[in-house]
């Protein structure tokens, strides 16, 4: 089974500051990481590969320095890495990104075998749109399973996959035929550590590098800024919160302290008390 995981190199948001005067994001000197949601997708792909055999290809679009994220993915055990890079891709929004990635995925399919599953993270931590995964699925005319929290079953004979999808108000259990695109939720698994052997393999691996022409893009107006109708009008830092802090009496045993805390919450928000009692009455 061939699986492709789309990953993105993003600035480590934990280390990003917003300039207090200009309200612009201060990216300079901020280290980059693999988008954390993509790591959950990668781990899931590696687990399926380990269980059923096959190959995992990681794909990213970005500047030449994005090769670092691909090598990092290789250290975790991915089998192949593809970098899609071209100055024409600069400034892509989700529409242009999903177009370019879908073209690269077609070429991956032609050269290395059609992927049964394409994984992405549910969204990236820098854009937060959650649109690229569905965009790729649409362009490749694939089924899509988004916000997946668990792979329940993979049936290679009937070529189906069953997953749990987190939806508002509950969990949906969905099944799809291959080929399919899956976007993974956070905390669905824990990324493996890799090994010295994989780290060395990653260093020696040749990363397949393609530009727009190599993946067959003829209409460059669909790429980069020209192919991106999205306009960011303003970025600003939210103002500070002014919620007051209340110190609950911390004397006494844990039970007494817990009761004091509950009393304080109920006193402050009588609706909470009412709701809880209603729910409790409903259960009995």
């Amino acid at each position: 089974m061939h699986i492709v995981v789309c990953i993105k190199q993003v600035p480590d948001s934990a280390q990003i500051r917003v300039h207090p005067v200009t309200n612009t994001i201060m990216r300079q000197g901020v280290p980059t990481i693999i988008n954390p949601y993509d790591l959950f997708a990668l781990e899931e792909a590696l687990r399926l590969r380990d269980k059923f055999g096959g190959e995992v290809t990681v794909l990213t679009m970005g500047p030449p320095t994005a090769v670092e994220s691909l090598r990092k993915a290789l250290t975790f055990g991915a089998d192949r890495a593809v970098l899609l890079t071209d100055r024409y891709f600069a400034g892509s929004d989700t529409l242009a990104t999903s177009f370019a990635l879908s073209m690269a995925l077609k070429k991956i399919g032609a050269e290395f075998g059609d992927p049964a599953i394409i994984f992405t993270g549910k969204q990236t931590i820098d854009g937060d749109t959650a649109q690229v995964g569905p965009g790729i699925a649409k362009r490749l005319d694939r089924n899509q399973l988004t916000y997946v929290s668990k792979i329940v079953e993979t049936d290679l004979v009937n070529r189906t996959i069953t997953v749990e999808r987190r939806a508002e108000g509950g969990v949906q259990v969905l099944q799809s035929r291959f080929p399919v695109l899956i976007t993974m939720l956070e905390a669905t698994n824990e990324m493996r550590r890799g090994s010295v052997e994989n780290a060395l393999k990653a260093a020696r691996a040749e990363v397949v590098t393609w530009n727009a022409e190599a993946v067959g893009i003829e209409d460059l107006t669909q790429c980069g800024l020209r192919g991106s109708p999205t306009i960011v009008k303003k970025v600003f830092a939210p103002g500070g919160r002014t919620d007051e802090v209340q110190l609950v009496d911390n004397e006494g045993n844990p039970e007494a302290r817990a009761n004091a805390l509950i009393d304080a919450i109920f006193a402050r928000s009588p609706d909470v008390e009412k709701d809880l009692f209603d729910q409790a009455a409903h259960h009995f």
């Binding site: 090598r71 250290t75 890799g194 010295v196 994989n198 780290a199 060395l200 260093a203």
Partner: peptide, 16 residues
């Protein structure tokens, strides 16, 4: 030595 390999091994070591 390849710098990224070293970083990967340091990350692996720190986590393990």
């Amino acid at each position: 030595t390849d710098a990224e390999t070293v970083d990967a091994i340091i990350d692996l070591s720190a986590r393990l």
